[in-house]
Design a protein around this nucleic acid. Structure first.
Length: 479
RNA sequence: GGCGCCGUACCCAAGUGGCUAAGGGAGCAGUCUGCAAAACUGCGAUGCGGCGGUUCGAACCCGCCCGGCGCCUCCA
């Protein structure tokens, strides 16, 4: 039984979808005005993992993830770059797909854009006005928070408490300082759409209500995003949506923790962020490997906790993933013994399958799930030592592939281990040069000229290259 | 001021009431190897920030304290 920590109740709850066998989930994507950083990657990865696991569990998932493509920051960026705002959003949507593609993150079922849902947004605002929970001031429309009695139930705040410490600028037009804009009248030159209140654009929160309801219905199963969206964004979404429909909005709210640098939140304002692009471009590993290492690194932390990013952490993740692919390579080598799959092995397969599921069922505990795969890796290595048949080896690889697919790991056929930088990496040697030395050494070994063989090993070792002689007579190298 | 999160070995990180506190990395010793690497074996917290309390029993529940962080303003 899958349990999910629900921000709304503050508890882990058994997950029961509204309609058995199907899950409808909505996740707040990004505002496309700049490159994505690691924090965006984490969020995207976490919700993709959740989606993958739900599907792996046999559920049919409709996954909606939006792009916010009209917003103050976009307008500012366009002015800064002196290009049309549509060019800004187009550029960063492309960048988004490029970066997420590198991480192996699959697109959602539906990826709606705010600008393509103006009719729905306007209709929703109209309903809110009709119901008396929103009011118009000049060409702006505000949601009146006091009309929604349960306001604050997600973020566990009281309206009164917020007023006390509110640093919100006093806006004479608003009936309550916490009232928020549903529709903003346009100033000259700003992007705008026709509406009953004049030309303008939607407020930030309303688009998610409109788009989720359109694609998933008024009540759906899961709504997610980064922990920083709990307030005000998600709180306001609830107020608007429930205010309009009188029904429950999302049933389970899931929020991921922040990526930190030296124990501090990674954010634009602190200037301590790494973009996904620069991580890939600076990486000494190939794109595929960097992607998998990054996934491994991010998923060995629980999604709700904070995660400290560091080069050391990344290197350790690389080493750990290497260990898995080392095993996969061993599994390809001729088996020591053939014969029926032994009982120990069958037990290990079954235990891994069931404990992996247990871990994932417990609020998507990926660190524990990965630990289980580590345990299985070690076990297969031991069995291999004792003699494991080719058939069993294939089964093991298949299990890694199938459970790994939930995390987006272990899908590669060929793990290079080595640097595949555009040129030659830190070693100062090209792949071809290393291969030539490797061959020369093997020739020397055949002739029992171990002095020469060791000399070559030493030369390469000084350049950070490790040679590994395999039982089948071949030699592998790693940087 | 309000609300909330975190603190487990040298490092990363599970465990949230009951067998000897997962797993990985690093380290040390050994097996294997022409030498290595990989793999395997062994070693490592009598204690889970501190102090009290509840309980037959707590890293896990409660209280207080210390340390770090986040949200309340755009933010994944």
């Amino acid at each position: 039984m899958l349990k999910i920590y629900n921000t709304l109740t503050g508890k882990k709850e058994p997950f029961e979808p509204l309609t058995a066998g199907t899950v409808k989930m909505y996740v707040c994507g990004v505002t496309v005005y700049d490159e994505c950083h690691l924090g965006h990657a984490r969020s995207a990865l976490v919700f993709e993992m959740i989606r993958r696991y739900l599907e792996h569990s046999g559920l049919s998932v409709t996954f909606v993830k939006n792009f916010t493509d009209v917003d103050d920051k976009i307008i500012n960026r366009a002015n800064e770059l002196k290009i049309p705002w549509q060019a800004v959003t187009a550029r960063y949507i492309d960048a988004y797909y490029r970066d997420m593609g590198r991480l192996g993150i699959q697109p959602a079922t539906v990826e709606p854009k705010a600008t393509e849902h103006m009719a729905e947004i306007i209709a929703l605002v109209q309903v809110l006005i009709q119901k008396g929970v929103a009011y118009q001031v000049n060409s702006d429309v505000y949601f009146q928070v006091e009309k929604y009695g349960a306001y604050g139930r997600l973020s566990k705040r009281k309206l009164d408490d917020m007023q006390a410490g509110a640093r919100v600028e006093v806006d004479e037009c608003k009936r309550h300082p916490m009232d928020f804009a549903l529709w903003k009248g346009a100033k000259p030159g700003e992007p705008s759409w026709d509406s009953p209140w004049g030309k303008g654009r939607p407020g930030w929160h309303i688009e998610c209500s409109a788009m989720s309801m359109k694609h998933l219905g008024e009540t759906f199963d899961i709504h997610g995003g980064g922990a920083d969206l709990i307030f005000p964004h998600h709180e306001n979404e609830i107020a608007q949506s429930c205010g309009a429909t009188g029904k429950e909005f999302a049933r389970y709210w899931i929020h991921n923790g922040f990526v930190q640098i030296n124990q501090e939140k990674m954010s634009k304002s602190l200037g301590n962020f790494f973009t996904i692009r620069e991580i890939f471009e600076k990486s000494e590993w190939s794109q595929e490997i960097t992607g998998e290492v990054l996934r491994y690194f991010l998923l060995t932390n629980h999604y709700r906790g904070p995660l400290d990013f560091s080069d050391q952490g990344l290197r350790e993740a690389k080493h750990a993933v290497d260990g898995f692919y080392d095993l996969f390579n061993r599994l390809k080598e001729p088996a020591k013994t053939e014969g029926p799959v032994n009982e120990k092995f069958t037990t290990a397969i079954e235990r891994t399958r069931s404990t992996f599921k247990q871990a994932m069922d417990d609020d998507f505990n990926t660190p524990e799930a990965v630990a289980e795969l580590q345990g299985f890796r070690s076990e297969v290595n031991k069995l291999l030592e004792a003699g494991l048949s080719t058939k069993a080896g294939k089964q093991a690889r298949e299990l890694f592939r199938s459970l790994g697919s939930v995390l987006g790991l272990f899908q590669l056929e060929q793990w290079q281990f080595n640097v595949v930088l555009s040129d030659i990496g830190v070693s100062g040697l090209t792949d071809a040069e290393i291969d030539r030395l490797k061959d020369e050494r093997n020739e020397a070994r055949k002739q029992k000229n171990f002095a020469r063989a060791d000399e070559i090993r030493k030369t390469l070792a000084e350049k950070g290259i490790t040679l590994e002689d395999r039982p089948d007579g071949t030699t592998r190298w790693k940087r």
